[in-house]
Computed example of a mutant assay.
Amino acid sequence: MRIDSMRDSSRRVLVVALGVVVAGLGIFAAPAQAASWSSYLSKVPTGFESRRWYEPNTATTIKFTGCSTDQNAVRVTLAKDISLSPDTYYSTAAFTNCLKGSTYTSTGNWNAHGNANHYFSINEYLVGTTVTTVKSLTVSC
């Protein structure tokens, strides 16, 4: 059946049905974010969560270069994003070297935690308001 020979109402139903199918597939598709990526942070608050990325069952390395905060360290916690359940939090790395200047780097390494969406949080368990800036960051899996 050719679409141009269909009545207008039938054509609309077909377009809506195709849209629903495509949208439904998008909900269940694996995320498109790359497992390794780079970015920066500008004045993020306590408890900030990074973007999510899909990570195969590999180790994770997070590097911050050129940090500033009003604390004595930037605390970075790796987490597994679990839909409709509490997330799983792994160990926290205290980044201090990056506080020495814009060219200094701190590195945190985490073991593999299975195929899943992951993210990191900043200063998750600190009381009060802290802002953190990172000149550049890299996540590698």
Rank of each mutant, 00 (worst) to 15 (best):
K63C: 05
V76I: 15
S68Q: 10
D87T: 10
R51W: 13
R51T: 05
T69Y: 01
C98M: 14
F64H: 13
S106N: 10
S102Y: 13
S50L: 03
R51C: 02
T103M: 12
D70C: 00
G108A: 15
W53Y: 11
A79P: 08
S91T: 14
T92S: 01
Q71H: 02
D87L: 09
Y90L: 05
N97E: 14
R52A: 00
L99M: 07
I62C: 12
R51A: 09
S50K: 02
T60V: 15
L99D: 09
A94R: 04
A93R: 00
T92V: 05
T107P: 10
K63T: 15
K80S: 14
F95M: 14
T105G: 04
A73M: 00
S85G: 05
D70Y: 03
T105P: 03
S68N: 10
G108D: 02
T77H: 05
K80A: 13
N72M: 03
T58E: 15
W53N: 01
V74L: 02
A93N: 00
S91F: 10
P86R: 08
T107L: 05
R75S: 04
T92G: 02
T65P: 02
T58Y: 03
N72L: 03
T107M: 07
T60M: 13
G66S: 11
I82E: 08
S85W: 09
T105F: 06
A93I: 04
E49A: 15
Q71I: 01
T92D: 01
W53P: 01
T60G: 10
Y54T: 00
T60C: 13
P86W: 12
E49P: 00
A93P: 00
S106T: 12
T77P: 09
S50G: 14
W53G: 01
T105H: 01
A93W: 00
T107D: 05
N57W: 09
T105I: 02
V74A: 03
Y54N: 08
S68E: 06
C67K: 01
T65V: 06
F95D: 06
E55W: 03
D81I: 10
G66Q: 09
G66Y: 09
T96L: 01
C67G: 05
T96D: 03
T88C: 03
V76E: 04
G101D: 12
Y54W: 15
G66D: 08
G47Y: 09
S91W: 12
A59T: 15
R75M: 00
E55R: 06
G108W: 07
Y90V: 07
I82L: 09
N97H: 13
S68K: 07
I62G: 11
T61A: 11
T58G: 07
K63E: 12
N109A: 10
T46G: 04
T103F: 11
